[in-house]
Design a protein around this nucleic acid. Structure first.
Length: 800
DNA sequence: ATAGGGTTAG
């Protein structure tokens, strides 16, 4: 291109020649994504040389600015035209549509006088709606075109555009058939693109007959293109009919990359990781180029199956193929890598990928956020959440359930409210998170309210929300409501079964839990590792030692689930509660791996129930070594030493703890305040004060009924009446002991509670109730929070 | 000047 100062020569020649010169320059720039600076240079050159673009040259310039994704420049040019023609207007409509600015596109369309509107401009506007997800508006505009602009004939472009919009909203095939008639009426039924779009719409309808119709159209096509095959195959994949998709795929003579990718992603989406990887292997062996779509799907498959090594191989392949990938094209691949590493527990690698990205989208942020959340790194997750440039429903949901599943129910509920305040409408997963948060707080009333709202939102058939409700009711002690949820759920999955078995087990219905487990096997829902954890617990609480040991053997023997440390811990718990302490010790010695904290905790619990001080101290010492930062062990161990009169060891334990940098002083716990009650006492059935605790609980139950007090949970009444007293005492012991201890305090005393004891749920109810029964004001401090109990009511807030 | 397929986050 000549430099600006050489232009005077050009100006002297024919103006037509100059126009041709610029038309040719602009023509050279034509491509899907022209460079903005080049377009700008040519434009500047025109201005410098005194050439004023008009007509098709101006339109072309507007188009180039639009395609270089600089709609603002295009708009400036457009605004300067006194009466822009239909071509310029259509260009601008398309540009706004491409930048997802549907309202601006519509405004340009509306400002176009009726008499100059043509089919192309309607097509552009219809397609703008379709591409931006508003299928209804696309169909509506198509109808308007037929009603009001009768001289305008819809063409093949019109039908492909409106059909792709219809595909977003059609569920029954009535509208599809109507549109099919219109296609025939306007003679576009032999156009390949229209047929492809029609097949796509029919494939998305619910009825099976529409899929058959689509297949008939497909089979009748003489000139199928790549898109026809892809549409048909992805249609089957979307319907979950992977066999039909595979059959069609196998029948293809020449397979191209897109159908390979469609098959792989279809298998990944429906959870068939093995099939996805097998397709990937075949694709590789047949020498098809593995592009970013392939890699992304395969990485996702590896992430879902936890196949870190396979995923790493793909990662290596990506680096080898494309050492300097374009930032934008490789974005989904990077996102999938973040997910791969975080799902395989490698959060540092995930973060490394994330930090190394020069361009991040919402998916990248959500991927790293959910990585932190699922690994329990709530602090990191919260930091990410706070600095995210944008958020969507998924972001909120992940963070809410992250709080809920990490014991931060209050934060979860607060965030749920904040989300709604910011105008984000919750989905069923968000409700599930909030319900789980309520469950963690023991806030039954709140949970019930959420249940009501959930129904109003129409999410009552959601499996995830149903499971959350089931668990919430169970944890708040309303087993009947949990059972009702379970029975009325339209499609209970293994999570629902596990939750219901757990609910029965936790509330003393051990045999009921085992019956339900047998029923689960009968209806052929495969038990998973969680099922066996639950079943072992149920056996443990019901004292069904023989059955528990049988199931433990069955787990690996019949179902191929290798027992994890948690399973061993449950087994030890089962034996320990039944008093078979030496047997439990024997299993610990023969375990295939080094016993960790959960195993020793289980043994310790057994020793506490049966007063086996010798073994108990041994377990506590092991625990002390493994988790020196755990305050509970420290207090327990020194108390145990004290109980058997080993005062020096008790002092040594406290000192050793202090030396390891544990800042917590013994004086912080309520034990020191009330002196007359010890945690250890509550669990030791041989301890002289235990009958007193039983008596207290029974009196409490009677008083509660007498006063007509309806507690949030059935904690005391239910548990004390059941036969599983040992279990009740060990799960609720600390909470009850706190309550018991509080009664013995001088009036108005401020109490600090053990770190692992949250003032919530059962404990909250108990103290509320007691403040009424004994007519005392009780103030409890729990971290930064304070709870003020008076006359059966409670007000809480931040302490400072 | 206008259309259509395969990718990632719970």
């Amino acid at each position: 291109m000549p430099h600006a100062h050489s232009c005077p020569q050009l100006i002297q020649t024919d103006v037509r020649k100059i126009a041709n010169f610029y038309a040719a320059r602009l023509q050279q720039l034509c491509c899907p994504r022209p460079s903005f600076s080049l377009v700008r240079t040519v434009h500047a050159h025109m201005i410098a040389s005194g050439f004023r673009p008009r007509g098709h040259i101006l339109n072309r310039l507007i188009d180039l600015y639009c395609k270089s994704t600089n709609v603002t420049y295009a708009r400036h040019l457009f605004d300067a035209i006194p009466q822009p023609d239909i071509v310029a207007r259509t260009t601008l409509i398309t540009a706004y549509s491409n930048s997802a600015n549907i309202n601006l596109a519509r405004r340009v369309f509306d400002e176009t006088p009726f008499f100059i509107r043509d089919t192309v401009s309607y097509n552009a506007m219809i397609s703008a709606y379709s591409r931006n997800g508003d299928g209804c508006a696309a169909v509506e505009l198509f109808c308007e075109m037929g009603r009001e602009r009768l001289h305008l004939c819809p063409d093949d472009f019109t039908f492909t555009s409106v059909l792709s919009g219809l595909a977003l909203v059609a569920d029954d095939d009535r509208q599809c058939r109507q549109m099919h008639c219109a296609v025939v009426k306007f003679g576009t039924e032999s156009n390949v693109s229209v047929l492809n779009a029609l097949i796509s719409v029919y494939m998305r309808c619910f009825s099976g007959s529409s899929a058959v119709l689509a297949r008939q159209l497909f089979d009748g096509m003489l000139d199928k293109d790549e898109l026809s095959w892809t549409t048909m195959i992805t249609g089957y994949v979307r319907r979950g009919d992977l066999d039909a998709a595979q059959q069609l795929f196998d029948g293809m003579k020449e397979k191209f990359d897109v159908v390979w990718n469609a098959m792989i992603s279809g298998y990944v989406h429906h959870g068939f990781t093995g099939e996805a990887l097998e397709m990937f292997r075949r694709m590789y062996l047949e020498g098809v180029v593995l592009d970013e779509f392939t890699c992304t799907s395969v990485l996702s498959a590896c992430a879902n199956a936890g196949l870190l090594q396979h995923g790493k191989q793909v990662h290596a392949y990506i680096i080898r193929m494309d050492p300097t990938p374009e930032p934008e094209t490789s974005l989904p691949v990077k996102n999938a890598l973040i997910t791969l590493y975080s799902k395989c527990g490698k959060i540092y690698e995930a973060r490394w990928i994330f930090d190394g990205m020069c361009l991040r989208d919402l998916v990248s942020w959500n991927a790293i956020l959910s990585g932190y959340v699922t690994l329990g790194h709530i602090g990191d997750a919260q930091r990410i959440f706070n600095v995210m440039p944008e958020r969507n429903l998924l972001t909120w949901t992940v963070m809410i359930s992250g709080f809920a599943h990490n014991g931060l129910g209050e934060e979860g509920l607060k965030l749920f409210n904040r989300m709604r305040e910011e105008g984000v409408s919750p989905c069923d997963y968000a409700f599930a998170g909030a319900i789980t948060a309520s469950a963690g707080l023991g806030a039954l009333e709140h949970g019930r309210q959420l249940h009501g709202q959930l129904i109003r939102y129409g999410f009552d058939s959601s499996v995830s929300a149903g499971n959350a409700l089931l668990t919430m009711y169970a944890r708040c002690g309303v087993v009947e409501a949990a059972r009702c949820m379970f029975l009325t759920m339209p499609c209970a999955d293994s999570v629902s079964w596990n939750a219901m078995i757990a609910a029965l087990g936790q509330h003393g219905h051990g045999t009921g839990a085992l019956d339900l487990f047998e029923r689960m096997l009968q209806v052929e829902i495969s038990p998973d590792r969680i099922t066996f954890l639950t079943v072992l617990s149920a056996c443990s609480h019901a004292g069904l030692v023989k059955e528990g040991c049988e199931y433990f053997k069955l787990m690996n023997g019949r179902y191929g689930i290798i027992p994890s440390e948690d399973h061993y811990a449950r087994l030890i718990d089962l034996l320990g509660r039944a008093g078979k302490l030496s047997e439990a010790k024997g299993i610990i010695e023969k375990m295939p791996f080094k016993p960790g904290a959960p195993v020793w905790e289980a043994l310790l619990a057994g020793c506490r129930i049966h007063g086996n001080m010798e073994l108990g101290i041994q377990a506590a010492e092991e625990l002390f070594e493994l988790v020196p930062e755990h305050d509970g062990t420290y207090i327990l161990l020194s108390n145990m030493y004290a109980t058997v009169g080993r005062w020096n060891d008790a002092a040594k334990a406290r000192k050793a703890m202090k030396d390891r940098g544990v800042k917590k002083e013994p004086g912080c716990s309520w034990i020191e305040v009330s002196r007359s009650v010890h945690v250890f006492m509550v669990d030791d059935t041989k301890h002289p004060e235990v009958p007193e605790v039983y008596g207290f609980l029974e009196r409490l139950g009677v008083e509660m009924r007498k006063l007509g007090y309806v507690p949030d949970t059935k904690f005391v009444l239910h548990d004390v009446e059941s036969e599983q007293k040992e279990y009740v005492l060990s799960t609720h012991s600390e909470k009850l002991a706190v309550g018991y201890g509080l009664l013995k305090l001088p009036a108005g005393a401020t109490v600090r509670v053990l770190k692992n004891l949250r003032i919530c749920g059962d404990c909250h109810t108990a103290i509320k109730f007691m403040s009424k029964v004994v007519d005392r004001e009780i103030i409890v401090r729990d971290g930064k929070r304070f709870h003020h109990f008076k006359n059966g009511e409670c007000s809480c807030g931040n302490y400072w």
